[in-house]
Amino acid sequence: MSETISTVIKERRSVRKYDPNFKIKKEEILEMLKDATLAPSTSNLQPWEFIVFLNPEERKDLRAIAYNQEQIETASAVIAVLGDKEFHENIDPVYDSMYEAGYIDSASKEVLVGNARKTYPYAPEETRKNLATFDSGLAAMQFMLNAKERGYATGPMGGFDKVKFSERFNVSDRYFPIVLITLGKLNAPAYQTTRLAIEDKVKFI
């Protein structure tokens, strides 16, 4: 029987030690990413892209860009999560798809498209990047929980040179790197962590 979501959340750890001989099929990684992108996003405009690193030669370069952290090469895969700062380019394909699926009628589609076109293309780039970062973070967390439910280990990594990453892997100006996620089979226990008392972090009003 599948674990409850509460159990998955409580047992998930950020992992650094992976079995270097363990492989995960591309098809399963795609399934996990598909589930991850069911996360909510700004006006459903899905401001994310992913690069999945499997090739050992590419990962040697990625390891150098990620300050020589060994899990880049020992994990089964590394998923780079990118934000899309021009996510307004998704307006037509997103709402066309919703209309064709029967989820919205033509009048609703016209309102949604009109509102999005009046808002996002004219928003400051910093605002669009912040929205894309937030939404991509939701998808990244959903990916890690999905992986844990399937019995895999993950580790989010913010420590890498984002400028060099974009240069080396030919990331277009439309996208910007947010986080790397290592994925694979646990090879050593992840260390335990504690959390500050929730009573000190919550205020009811």
Results as ranks from 00 to 15, higher is better:
M1F: 11
M1D: 05
M1G: 12
S2H: 07
E3Y: 13
E3I: 00
T4Y: 12
T4R: 09
V8F: 03
K10M: 13
K10T: 06
E11I: 11
S14L: 02
S14E: 04
R16A: 15
Y18H: 03
D19H: 05
P20E: 04
N21I: 02
I24D: 05
I24A: 04
K25P: 02
L30S: 10
L30A: 08
L33N: 04
D35K: 12
L38F: 03
P40W: 08
S41H: 03
N44R: 09
N44G: 00
Q46A: 07
P47H: 13
E49R: 15
F50I: 06
I51Y: 05
V52R: 09
N55T: 11
E58I: 12
D61H: 00
R63E: 15
Y67P: 02
N68K: 11
E73D: 11
T74L: 01
A75H: 02
A75E: 03
A80G: 00
L82A: 10
L82E: 06
D84C: 05
D84Y: 00
K85W: 01
K85P: 07
E86I: 05
F87S: 00
N90Q: 13
D92T: 08
P93D: 12
V94N: 10
Y95G: 01
D96Q: 15
M98H: 07
Y99W: 13
E100I: 09
G102W: 13
Y103K: 14
Y103I: 08
S106D: 14
S106V: 11
S106A: 14
S106Y: 02
S108A: 15
K109A: 00
E110W: 00
L112C: 01
V113P: 04
G114Q: 06
G114H: 08
K118N: 12
K118H: 07
Y120S: 11
Y120P: 02
Y122M: 04
Y122N: 11
Y122Q: 09
P124E: 07
L131G: 03
A132Y: 01
T133Y: 06
F134G: 01
S136H: 09
L138T: 05
A139D: 10
A140L: 06
Q142P: 01
F143G: 02
M144R: 04
M144C: 14
M144V: 07
M144P: 14
N146P: 01
A147S: 09
K148F: 04
K148E: 14
G151L: 08
G151D: 04
T154L: 07
G155Y: 01
P156I: 06
G159C: 07
K162P: 11
K162A: 05
V163C: 00
F165R: 07
F165D: 02
F165N: 08
R168H: 10
F169Y: 08
S172W: 10
S172F: 08
R174W: 06
R174P: 08
Y175S: 09
F176L: 10
I178P: 04
V179Q: 12
L180K: 06
T182E: 06
L183P: 06
K185D: 01
N187S: 14
N187Y: 13
Y191D: 15
Y191S: 15
Q192H: 10
T193G: 09
T193P: 02
T194R: 11
T194A: 09
A197R: 09
A197G: 07
I198Q: 07
K201D: 02
K203V: 15
F204I: 15
F204D: 13
I205H: 12
